[in-house]
C-alpha cells in the first residue's frame, strides 16, 4: 500500500463531512426526515402528491451548492473521466441498486451508521467492498 501524500487532505474532508452531518441532523430535527440522496431522487420517480415538493427543494439545494461553494471556498472540478457508455452503465447500476437496497452513501453510510443500524452497516460494508473491488479490477486486472 502506497499513500498518495500529494492529494491527501484530511481537514477539508473532515470539515466537509461535518457539514454533511449537520445537514442530516438538521433535516431529522426540523422535518423528521432522513437525508438520503438516492431516496430524495427515487421518491420523485414517480412523484407522489404531497411528497414531491420537499424532495425537489432539497435536490435544488444540492445543485445550487457548487455555485455557492465557488465563492465560499476552493472547489475541485468534478473530474469525471468515464466514457459515455460507462457513465450510462454505471448510472443504471447506481440508480437501480440504491433503490433495491433503499439507500446509498448518505442514507445508509451516514444516516444509517449514525443511527447505529446493523442493516445500514451491512449495506455500507457491501457497497464499499464492491467499490474497492471494482476499482481494483478496472485498474490492476483488466
Amino acid at each position: 500500500m502506497t499513500i498518495d501524500w500529494t492529494h491527501f487532505a484530511p481537514l477539508p474532508a473532515l470539515a466537509g463531512g461535518a457539514l454533511v452531518g449537520l445537514a442530516a441532523a438538521w433535516l431529522i430535527l426540523q422535518d423528521g426526515r432522513i437525508l438520503g440522496a438516492s431516496g430524495l431522487l427515487g421518491g420523485l420517480i414517480p412523484p407522489r402528491s404531497g411528497d414531491w415538493r420537499w424532495r425537489a427543494e432539497a435536490i435544488l439545494g444540492l445543485i445550487v451548492a457548487p455555485f455557492v461553494a465557488h465563492f465560499a471556498f476552493q472547489t475541485a472540478s468534478p473530474a469525471i473521466a468515464a466514457a459515455p457508455a460507462t457513465l450510462i452503465a454505471g448510472g443504471l447500476m447506481v440508480g437501480f441498486g440504491t433503490r433495491l437496497a433503499n439507500g446509498c452513501t448518505s442514507g445508509h453510510g451516514v444516516c444509517g451508521l449514525a443511527r447505529l443500524s446493523p442493516r445500514s452497516l451491512a449495506a455500507t460494508l457491501t457497497f464499499m467492498t464492491a467499490g474497492f473491488a471494482t476499482v481494483f479490477v478496472v485498474r490492476h486486472v483488466i
Binding site: I80, A82, T86, L87, A89, G90, G91, L92, M93, V94, F96, G97, T98, L100, A101, C104, T105, T126, F127, M128, T129, A130, G131, F132, A133, T134, V135, V138
Partner: peptide, 9 residues
C-alpha cells in the same frame, strides 16, 4: 450493484 457502478465512475 451500487458499489460496482460507484467504482466504475
Amino acid at each position: 450493484l451500487f458499489g460496482v457502478g460507484w467504482g466504475l465512475v
